[in-house]
Design a binder for these strands. Structure first.
Lengths: 190, 190
DNA sequence: AAGAAATGTCAACAGGTGTTGGCCTACGCT
DNA sequence: AGCGTAGGCCAACACCTGTTGACATTTCTT
């Protein structure tokens, strides 16, 4: 269904997408130029337009993210925090698309919209099964987001020492209990 | 020392700075144009150049931030987390300059450098007096930053519900214990 | 009152941006 | 083989960017 005929230009399309992700991750939305992306991909800027319409649609295609969140029902209730922290950190460590979306979301409306959408459709459902009352899931998910995105911001975007050089395991050990509390503890407004 | 003769153009300079802060906060560094800032201030774009040299210096002047952090030695040790959380939230709520710096820091090198500098010179010293071993201050300060900046990012930049509409007191109640733990709890790497 | 300095205005430059249309080439089908 | 079409490149447009220089005007100094 989602798969059409293989086109002769599939390699080019993929090269564009890869280059776009790198540029968007490194420079953000506005400073990543179509010309630079095309140059990285070794093709003409016109191709980008032909295959993706315009810059906004190119970004939308490049910033398609699947968080691949684990099913928390399979995780011991007292370990969901650390489990989530580890998952996010590894995800971020191996996929620059996440940084691309984060950097762009700071100034680009479409990107921030996509960011909200991503957490609403992917994180909230996962949180819902791990917290005492599913109705609290949006609030708890937002709190989790605030810590996860904040850590990513400091470590990968702002490059704030010593968070950059701190071993991933240490970061996870610090963030785990925080997420655990946001997921399961009783807080204000129930 | 820091105060020279009052100049006839002080009003203009101030108007430029105010308009610059608004634009940088709303649009980020690259999308905030000198022309738009000048238009907001009701003057000619050339004036911006004359008084601030170039766009980068204008931003540097506009994003000068004093966190006005409280002296934590005066705060009961078990309340430093909540105290800090409240301070940051109020600070953010009333000064759009913070949002300007955050938005810009995502894509602009100078801005992210300034951000790091700000936390190193202002937050680390304050954290040092509140944590068991002053040598751990940089790491603990970075963790505090990650949560504070993350919350600000979600609430003021990404506008991620329900964090946007959540009462400030609730946010503080959630973040307080997190900061408290980052400041005082024993964690990995001592 | 005369000269110097500061303040402001106008037009323009040089470079980069997203985006478009035209043209040539090379593949895939019949 | 011949043709249609998709893939690819080139030149260019229209616009916007930060920035500069020349000129007019007001204010301060002497």
């Amino acid at each position: 269904m989602t798969q059409g005929k293989p086109r002769r230009s599939d390699a080019t399309r993929a090269a564009i997408l890869t280059a776009a992700r790198e540029r968007f991750a490194a420079d953000g939305y506005e400073r990543a130029t179509i010309r630079a992306i095309a140059a990285d991909a070794g093709i003409d800027p016109t191709m980008v337009m032909r295959y993706y319409g315009n810059k906004e649609k190119l970004f939308a295609a490049a910033a398609q993210i699947d968080l691949r969140l684990p099913d928390l029902t399979m995780v011991p209730p007292d370990q969901v925090g650390t489990r989530l922290a580890r998952h996010f950190l590894e995800r971020w460590e191996h996929d620059e698309t996440m940084a691309a979306l984060l950097r762009a979301a700071a100034t680009n409306q479409g990107a921030s919209h996509r960011m909200r959408e991503m957490f609403a459709t992917q994180l909230v459902p996962v949180v819902a099964v791990a917290c005492p009352d599913p109705a609290q899931a949006p609030a708890r998910a937002a709190l989790v987001s605030s810590q996860v995105l904040g850590a990513a911001l400091c470590r990968y975007v702002l490059r704030l020492e010593p968070l950059v050089t701190m071993p991933a395991d240490d970061v996870i050990a610090w963030l785990g209990p925080t997420l655990q509390r946001y997921l399961t503890a009783t807080g204000p407004a129930v």
